[in-house]
Design a protein around this nucleic acid. Sequence first.
DNA 1: CCGCCTGGCGGGAGCGCTCTCGCCTCCCCT
DNA 2: AGGGGAGGCGAGAGCGCTCCCGCCAGGCGG
Lengths: 349, 349
Amino acid sequence: MSDTVPRPTLEAVAARAGVSRATVSRVVNGGDGVREPLVERVRQAVEELGYVPNQAARSLVTKRHDAVAVVIAEPETRVFADPFFALQLRGISKELTAHDNQLVLLLTEGRDDHTRVARYLAGGHVDGALVFSLHVDDPLPELIQGAGVPTVFGGRPGWGDGTRDVVYVDSDNRGGARAAVRHLVGLGRTRVAHITGPLDQTSAADRLQGYRDVMGDADPRLVVESDFTPGGGERAMRELLDRCPEVDAVFAANDLTASGVLRVLRERGRRVPEDVAVVGFDDMVPVAEQSDPPLTTVRQDIEEMGRVMTRLLLRSLDRRNTGGAAPDPVRPAPSGEVLPTTLVRRASA
Amino acid sequence: MSDTVPRPTLEAVAARAGVSRATVSRVVNGGDGVREPLVERVRQAVEELGYVPNQAARSLVTKRHDAVAVVIAEPETRVFADPFFALQLRGISKELTAHDNQLVLLLTEGRDDHTRVARYLAGGHVDGALVFSLHVDDPLPELIQGAGVPTVFGGRPGWGDGTRDVVYVDSDNRGGARAAVRHLVGLGRTRVAHITGPLDQTSAADRLQGYRDVMGDADPRLVVESDFTPGGGERAMRELLDRCPEVDAVFAANDLTASGVLRVLRERGRRVPEDVAVVGFDDMVPVAEQSDPPLTTVRQDIEEMGRVMTRLLLRSLDRRNTGGAAPDPVRPAPSGEVLPTTLVRRASA
DNA sequence: CCGCCTGGCGGGAGCGCTCTCGCCTCCCCT
DNA sequence: AGGGGAGGCGAGAGCGCTCCCGCCAGGCGG
């Protein structure tokens, strides 16, 4: 059948335009150092033949791929149930296409995948990697560091002791949590509880930290560990009400948790925000806006986070390609970029 | 700094193992036609040097890339808010990695992106494409067909007149809708309404069709068009109650819509399911299970859909590479695979 | 026992591109 | 008007791999 006609090569275009391969190459890659009339002739030949450069041939010599891997470690299924990654991917994708780079998606679950991913990255198929790994004990980041591929992490890696040569982008979880709790305190609430996320994730740990920044170690009964899910939020809230019925405010570690909290509160006949004020985290719009009452929450700009990660990575790739000479002796590589979070006031607090 | 040591080449491995490049190549690609002792020696050399084949060089000669593009046309932002694509991607990713293929993700919004994607696909960077385009008037599918890349569509393409040479995988939206409505009728409901999705999406159109299969054209007041969102569901339900207060059952085109429906029903003091029974579609677990009351809905296996699409594509790529000779004269190419949907009974109907 | 055939292995070409050279042209300065 | 320099362009050498082909060894039949 349609055995896909052989695509035209540089050679063919050169012949058609009556110039050398080198000149066509120059034109295709920006056209510097070629005089206008020739440029025009080559452009036309390219057009007529429908020439598209063969990326494989190009990579073979340049050793660049104009491709970036996005690694999403996803041990638990539920992680994927929220639009978090979708938004990240959007931001990443936009930024990548703006710079003519491709996005190679690597989804992992389980150990075998880890080594597979590490091998792939070490294989030099991509120029860099954007890695999301939520859990502190995840071996993946270390493996990837070992692969020698420029990498930017999404979220503060748990194992980073601060001095490591790690580049990451994170939301200001701690600051956002502080803002949330302060808001609650500002409302005159005195029994402000916190239902945490899984504390082996740095985002959850940081939010707890922010809560403690404001509340100190106050009443330990007011902190209940949970798991970022609505069901977990329900369980935690029941436990909380049993332990400490006089609670008058809850800072839930994310919006999903908050939705569980609201449900239990309704079920127990507590009015929100009159009896108990509730603040969430994430500003997952469909959840937060549609909840009853609409949820006051801390917004983080997930898409922007993806964008920033990408920019960071591309910039470091650029450096590597141009002047690796001076490796910036003043501020070495390690750095984390922390994106602001903002409190969004709705009805629940 | 660490200027990434040059990776070992086939040549290097060959030297180390004391054989020719060709032999190493043979071993790396399966080892047929090489005697055991040599295979072993080569394997060891590969191991010692940490050799990884250079995919670019390989593609250059084989003209295969072991990579598949996943194109997600996403005109509206909200599409991304539900876990639909995330699940698809999971299925696709699993199947792809099982066959040692990479996933190149192409997210699009807007016209410019369309031509960009078309160019990319036509550029022969990938072996095939998996395309999701929800709207009937989306020009993307046509563009992609034109690019001459083997393609499988996710969801029935709107412009397919049935006779076109199109391969797609879809859920049995129509059948699922029928099952939902029959269930409602079986409950003794006589005023069964349908709140549709955006009818320019085939899934929404098919669900409406399924509703009509059972209800005929009955009372036109019972069909309200909406947009797959909770807010849209609310508006539609209000309108429905105004138009036709005696409604005793609602089949919502998806779970998000159903959640809006439930909210309005609660607000208007109608009991679910006693006064009005409600059925959704999708079985988006977090929404359906957590709703109040838990939602009876039609489940579709999204992840499996991704898997099936991938299998279909890979199979056709295989054919192309091996014996394109006999293009299967009996059953030509065109085909759509329709995956079953099942009714999940919870409390709302 | 010799020739032939089979099968394992090496040599070499070439995939389509980039990039370094070196030549040649044209322009500018003296 | 002539010399020097700069810049435009072409030739050619690979990048790392696959695959075709041809050589050589070993096993068989005549």
